[in-house]
Design a protein around this nucleic acid. Structure first.
Lengths: 218, 218
DNA sequence: ATTCAGTTTGTGATTTTATCACTAATTTCA
DNA sequence: TGAAATTAGTGATAAAATCACAAACTGAAT
């Protein structure tokens, strides 16, 4: 990979010395869907910067129940890996690849060096914290204040946008896991949406009406 | 206030030049219980550093429902005010004083200057982000994975420790608000705890057994 | 001291949501 | 082809939230 290619993937970084350092010290990785990048309890020694694709970030509790938090998209990094790394504490979350993804993994020491030397990197880290805080608050709002039917509809919209499709290839169980509830609840709520003709259900697939997002925001 | 006094309130800061700057540029404030420091929608122009006492931080939704997030204790600052300030976005949370509190309010510009010049300040900001992320995850776990009875018991323990007392002077309504549920639910759960002799209920007061924490953790 | 308004707490009835236990349908692959 | 695994459907039960109202307590004004 050339500095030029990296620059186009990370338009926020214009400083050629910064880009060069990232390229030189970072490890380029191509990941396939299903690859688990991080799991609770494991130690993280790298800060991942997504170049292409996306990474799904989930919170997990002791019994393995999980809760979707947010996606890391191209150009973004994970605030939790930043905090875990610098504190050298084990991961609190699970990160899993959902679509073919390339990223560059930066050793913690390099991150700290870049923080000292490059304002662009410092701003990047700072805005990462900001954005992730924001998304954590959104996740918190959902579980604290929203009913499951609304959460499910928003989940569907999020997935549609993330994968740029109106066919979700997933199971009710998978959705239930990510929303932190049980499969039956999701099955019943999906049936209700089907009854309203907003979606159609198949095995391992949900077909979503093009105007789904307008329908739910009434 | 002298540099020496500030130093003893903030033992993490040893650099005398840093302490001097904080004292010079910051505004010392003494706040009484009930004082609302921050509200959703309002802009924050200052980074508060708690010197004595504590500040309760709550998330609020559009309809005014709220959810307890964490306490800011002596020596701590608010990650959300850091992110809000630097992004100059309105507050997403409510901050309210629960016990007599003194803090020093630092203009955003000073925070940015200190970030550039003092490693100790940079580390302070970084560990603030870490700690608050951690506490957001704990709050998230509670609403996502825990039942209300357990959440209530943990809430009682948190309050006991925070205020160093086993008498909570509050109403069921107030507790319900902070846990994001309704008053009846809290009243009934408290009655169950009273039946088990773990607490005693009075008007505006809950007397908690000294060994409450051990009782609940088994 | 008595009354009265406001606040706080208690409780039954109802509805909603989550969980449990089990069945049915579909797919996989030996 | 048929047994195992996966996925989805459903009634019963339990937990939690909501509604409606009653009772108990408090403080201030008469």
């Amino acid at each position: 990979m050339t500095v030029e290619e990296l620059k186009s993937a990370l338009p926020n970084f214009t400083d050629p010395k910064l880009l060069e350092l990232i390229l030189e010290k970072g490890q380029l990785m191509k990941l396939e869907p299903g690859k688990v990048l991080m799991e609770p309890g494991k130690f993280i020694k790298m800060v991942p910067i997504v170049l292409e694709g996306s990474i799904k970030v989930l919170r997990m509790d002791e019994d393995g129940k999980e809760l979707f938090l947010y996606y890391l998209d191209a150009g973004e990094t994970c605030a939790l890996s930043l905090t875990c790394c610098t504190a050298s504490k084990p991961s609190e979350i699970k990160a899993i690849v959902e679509e073919p993804t390339t990223l560059i993994a930066l050793p913690v020491a390099v991150h700290e060096q870049l923080s000292d030397e490059f304002k662009q990197w410092k701003d990047f880290v700072s805005s990462t914290y900001q954005n992730r805080f924001q998304e954590m608050l959104i996740a918190l709002d959902a579980v604290a204040f929203k009913r499951m039917d609304e959460r499910l509809m928003r989940y569907i919209v999020t997935k549609m946008k993330q994968h740029k499709t109106n066919e979700l290839h997933t199971t009710h169980q998978e959705i239930a896991n990510e929303l932190g509830t049980s499969r039956e609840v999701i099955s019943r709520l999906l049936k209700q949406l089907e009854k309203k003709k907003w979606i159609e259900l198949g095995r391992n697939v949900i077909y979503i009406r093009d105007d789904f997002e307008e329908l739910i925001s009434k």
